Simulated assay, not measured.
Amino acid sequence: MQGEGLLIGKRQIFIRFSGCNINCIYCDTENSKTTELGKEYTFEELNNKIQELMTPDFYSLEITGGEPLLHSQYIHDFLKKYPYKAMLETNATLPNDMKILTDVIDIVSMDIKLPEHFKSQEEWEKIYKQELETIKVMESENQKYYIKIVISPTTPVTIINKILEDLKSITSDNIEVIIQPVSPMTLWNSKENLFKISELVGIKYNVSIIPQIHKYLDVE
């Protein structure tokens, strides 16, 4: 079951790729950062696994990681052979690899990371620049996508303002932005910052506040 974002509550079959090219402080899938825990599948073996999990309420594949764009050619070739409806969940830091996938992915869930997610400002600035380049690729290829921003009770409104200014010239007005409060919600003694940021984003974009529902349901 999808526990966050626009497809929340939909029955998806998760394909989790190992390995990640960045190191977020708040990562909730630490084991997926390394390639040592991954297992290789032929296209046929992967399709067989999907079919074993198939149910009548199946909505789409959820292609996630780690960072799935590290495996973009494999994903592309698999979906060309087995054209499942598919959602890509990505940190969006590999714009050239995104170009490979725009003809096989139905919707992209992409993060915009914040400085608070990294150990240094320099690290964030490099990643953020790559995310903006990936957005340009998706806009030019008419790829359907939405943006997810994970915020905390102390996320500065100033950084959200900067992101909105940067997005203004490269995105269309109908893009959905998901504000995702960092879990657990017990961290949020006050929701003031959450609603302030939502109001700010809502001036330009369709915005929703959506926590990670799968954590409330205790679903992996």
Rank of each mutant, 00 (worst) to 15 (best):
E116G: 13
D166R: 07
Y145C: 08
R11A: 05
L61K: 02
E52Q: 05
P211A: 06
N193L: 04
P115Q: 15
D111F: 00
I159L: 11
I8G: 03
L6W: 11
K80H: 08
K204H: 09
P83C: 03
L94I: 14
K49R: 14
F14L: 13
L101T: 03
L53Q: 11
I149M: 06
R11G: 02
N23H: 09
H71K: 03
K136C: 12
S152E: 13
N174A: 14
E30P: 12
Q12R: 06
S60H: 05
Y216L: 14
P181E: 01
N193H: 07
E125S: 10
I147N: 04
K129W: 15
I203G: 02
K49I: 01
G5S: 07
L101V: 02
E192R: 12
V219K: 14
I203E: 13
Y41Q: 07
I25R: 04
T34H: 12
L217W: 06
L200S: 15
W188L: 01
L217D: 09
S183E: 06
M110G: 00
K204I: 09
V182P: 01
F195C: 14
N142P: 00
L217S: 09
T34C: 10
R16I: 05
V157E: 15
V207I: 11
K129D: 13
L194K: 08
T158L: 11
W188D: 03
I13P: 01
E131K: 11
G9H: 06
F195P: 11
G66P: 00
I175W: 00
E52R: 05
V150H: 05
F58C: 06
S190N: 07
E125L: 15
I159S: 04
N47P: 13
F17D: 00
P68S: 12
S190Q: 07
I8V: 14
D97L: 12
N23S: 07
I50Y: 00
K148Y: 00
V150E: 01
I149K: 01
M1R: 08
I210F: 07
P211L: 12
I22H: 07
L79G: 03
H76D: 01
D166E: 14
K162S: 15
T155D: 06
G65E: 08
Q73V: 10
T35R: 09
I100H: 02
F118N: 04
K39Q: 09
V177A: 13
S172Q: 08
L94H: 07
N48K: 15
Q212D: 02
K136I: 13
P115C: 11
K144E: 13
Q73K: 11
E89S: 09
E133L: 09
E141M: 10
I197N: 01
G3N: 00
T154F: 07
L61F: 03
K99P: 02
S18E: 09
E176H: 08
N189Y: 01
T134M: 05
R11M: 07
E176D: 12
T90A: 02
S169I: 15
Y59G: 11
E45A: 11
I159A: 08
E133C: 05
H117Q: 08
Q143F: 04
A86M: 02
Q212L: 11
C20T: 00
T55A: 07
S32T: 12
E62Q: 05
F58H: 03
I197V: 10
Y84K: 02
D111R: 00
